[in-house]
């Protein structure tokens, strides 16, 4: 910066300050957060690399034999569900936790975006990243021989969105109530626990007996089972949908009540 600079701002002739439209603000925030997530190496490992490793492992190893016509057919729906948990819960939870620490949430909520727009932008970013994940996982699965039915795909898309909403609410609840370091630990630990034992990629009957009855009530088990029923059998698992709706409502109510912006 030089001392005698003369760059002037057109300060006098003012156009009245006005917000961009609500839709534009949310799209803007969603795009910004999605690009931030996709540029972050750790987030990419969590969002893309680990689900792909799970897919390939399940296609190579005989863990899911006997449940469907092929390993990849029974593995892919669960891996797509895992993608939703990675991005909506762990990835978004950690990002929000640190944004809260650095005052980013407070600053953005003073702009026309506001608190509501900020949350909507986050949901949009999660869905955008999820779309990228689904595209990558589906292509790799197709190369491994995955051929889902049209009915299955039509059912799976809204189910995956519902799952993303449930996990986003849960991620925001954690990020808004504990320190970011704790958010990091909790969401990563739960990702591993639910990923391994939560009924998300491994169906309940391949899990230890003690957890078999519990996983149906977990968001992970409900989403994993609903995705498998849709993409393997072309069936809508109404019970799982109710469980996911329940988690979404409970977690968003709790987040609305207890979320701390600073």
């Amino acid at each position: 910066m030089s001392a005698g600079q003369t760059v002037s701002l057109p300060l006098g002739a003012r156009t009245p300050s006005a917000p961009a439209s609500l839709g534009h603000r949310i799209l803007q925030q969603g795009r910004y957060e999605a690009l931030t997530m996709l540029r972050n190496g750790e987030q990419l490992i969590l969002a893309i690399v680990l689900p792909l490793m799970a897919l390939i492992a399940l296609a190579v190893l005989p863990l899911l034999d006997g449940l469907s016509s092929s390993r990849v057919n029974i593995a892919t729906p669960g891996v797509l569900a895992l993608c939703a948990m990675s991005t909506a819960f762990t990835g978004q939870g950690i990002a929000t936790g640190f944004d809260r620490r650095y005052g980013v949430l407070r600053f953005l909520s003073t702009t026309p975006l506001g608190k509501g727009g900020l949350i909507a932008g986050k949901v949009l970013a999660v869905l955008a990243v999820l779309a990228v994940q689904v595209a990558v996982v589906s292509v790799v699965a197709a190369l491994l021989g995955w051929r889902p039915s049209a009915t299955g795909v039509l059912l799976a898309v809204p189910l995956l969105i519902l799952g993303a909403v449930a996990f986003t609410s849960l991620g925001l609840l954690v990020a808004g109530t504990v320190r970011p370091e704790a958010t990091l630990a909790i969401t990563n630990l739960l990702w591993i626990l639910l990923g391994a034992l939560g009924g998300i990629v491994l169906p309940p009957d391949r899990l230890p007996v003690v957890v078999q009855d519990v996983v149906h009530f977990l968001p992970s088990g409900a989403l994993g089972q609903a995705m498998r029923d849709a993409l393997v059998g072309g069936q809508l698992n109404v019970f799982a949908v109710v469980i996911l709706l329940g988690w979404s409502i409970l977690a968003s109510a709790a987040a609305t009540r207890w979320f701390k912006w600073s």
């Binding site: 300050s17 917000p19 961009a20 534009h24 803007q28 702009t111 975006l113």
Partner: peptide, 8 residues
């Protein structure tokens, strides 16, 4: 990005 939140 912040500028995108405003009309003018």
């Amino acid at each position: 990005h912040v500028a995108g939140m405003y009309r003018n």
